[in-house]
Every structure is written in structure tokens, then in C-alpha cells.
């Protein structure tokens, strides 16, 4: 699987993602510039990553401007054809703004930026220690959408405590139903607020991020 990492003006986790994918997961990575459109070098078996950061300064609304960039038009096409797309943090926000994923990311419940290690899990995993760093990471969707997400197993990660218990005390930002990440119904577009690329190296004493890529079958 080959990876493309999109660089928007204001992206600041693009290099970290490249580093993690190349050096820690041993993948081929192509950096993609937001003003370009050509992604013919990728097949639907490959994965395009929208990294974290503050694309276009997050002016107007997080991810709202990035959605209209030339590269995003190609990424939206790519996703609609079944290509794999992963959005992390600001990338998740962009995917919601692009309607590739349902719902929205609102300002954290405490109205502050939060950067710390949190724990997340999916149905099969134990608690994984992954950092978050966001001001607008409180996932929100209406009840009908949420019920659909649950019914279709579209919630890829919940916030939990160290032991794997999912409850409000382990929820860092007030996300509805402790949602840390979701996928689309088709299962090829993934969005998550926590940063797996910040937890893929022994030098940082945390390689739980590698398991995130495994669980999403993006390794």
C-alpha cells in the first residue's frame, strides 16, 4: 500500500505523518500539494492521508476552506471510487466538512485547546495510549446519524480509560458517545481526532500508534 500525504498551507503534522509512515511503518509516501490535482499515481488500494494542523489557518471554520482546494476535489473523487482516505485531527475536520464523513467537530467542552495522552479503543482492542491536540475535537452528530453509526459499526474508536472502560470521565473533549473516530458506511474513509503518527516510535516510548494503523488495516 502506497501513501499520499496532502500538504495544505497551515498543515503542521504532514512531516510527522510522512516520518511515521516512511520510517516506522516502512511505507512509500508521496507528498501532495494542495494546489495540485493529479493523483493518478494512486490506485484504490492506496491511501491518501489528510494530516493534522491548521489548514488555511482554520479561518472561517476548521477544515471549511481546505474542502474547496483543488487537491480535495481529487481526494473526494478518489474516496467515492473506493480509495482509502484517512483524516487525522484537522484531516478529520476536513472530511466532515467535505461530507465524506457525517457529523461535525465542535469546540471542546471546556473551550480550551487540549494536548495530552488519552486512551482509545475499538471493539476488539485493548486501550491504546494516543495523544490528542485540538481545540475543536468534540464530535457531534444528530441521534439518527449516531444510531446509524453504531448500527453499521462505523465508530472506529471510543475514548476510554487506561483499563478500557468507556465513560464520560475518560472523554477529554465532550465528544458525543465518547466518539474519537469514525468511518464511512463503505469502510474506506476514516477520520479520527487522536494522532497515531505521534506514537509510532520507540524513541518516544509509545508505539501504540502502530496498532491504530493495524486496526484500520492501513498498515
Amino acid at each position: 500500500m502506497k501513501y499520499g500525504v496532502v500538504v495544505f498551507p497551515g498543515s503542521n503534522c504532514d512531516r510527522d505523518m510522512q516520518d511515521a509512515l516512511q520510517n516506522d511503518l516502512g511505507k512509500e509516501v508521496v507528498m501532495l500539494w494542495h494546489k495540485d490535482k493529479d493523483i493518478r499515481m494512486f490506485t484504490t488500494n492506496d491511501c491518501i492521508v489528510l494530516p493534522g494542523g491548521f489548514s488555511y489557518g482554520d479561518y472561517l471554520r476548521c477544515g471549511a476552506i481546505a474542502r474547496f482546494s483543488p487537491m480535495m476535489q481529487s481526494v473526494i473523487d478518489f474516496a467515492n471510487k473506493g480509495g482509502k482516505v484517512l483524516g487525522v485531527c484537522n484531516g478529520f475536520q476536513i472530511l466532515c466538512e467535505s461530507h465524506l464523513l457525517p457529523g461535525a467537530l465542535l469546540q471542546n467542552a471546556n473551550q480550551q485547546f487540549i494536548c495530552k495522552n488519552v486512551f482509545i479503543k475499538n471493539d476488539t482492542s485493548t486501550a491504546l495510549k494516543i495523544p490528542i491536540a485540538h481545540g475543536e475535537g468534540r464530535y457531534y452528530a444528530d441521534e439518527v446519524t449516531l444510531n446509524d453509526l453504531e448500527k453499521n459499526n462505523q465508530i472506529i474508536f471510543h475514548y476510554c480509560d487506561e483499563t478500557g472502560k468507556i465513560d464520560m470521565t475518560a472523554n477529554p473533549n465532550g465528544a458525543v458517545r465518547n466518539i474519537a473516530g469514525i468511518r464511512n458506511k463503505e469502510g474506506n474513509v476514516f477520520g479520527m481526532m487522536p494522532h497515531p503518527e505521534r506514537a509510532t516510535s520507540k524513541a518516544l516510548n509509545n508505539i501504540d500508534g502502530l496498532k491504530v494503523f493495524q486496526l484500520l488495516e492501513l498498515n
Binding site: 480550551q112 485547546f113 487540549i114 494536548c115 505521534r198 516510535s201 518516544l204
Partner: peptide
Amino acid sequence: TVQYDSMVGAANTSTNA
């Protein structure tokens, strides 16, 4: 400190140690 991004760059070894 929680209000500062202390981990961007994926190079801060003091977060976990």
C-alpha cells in the same frame, strides 16, 4: 501545559519519559 501542543513534531521524548 495541556493548552500547548507539546507533541507536534513527534520528537518530544519527555512526554512519556
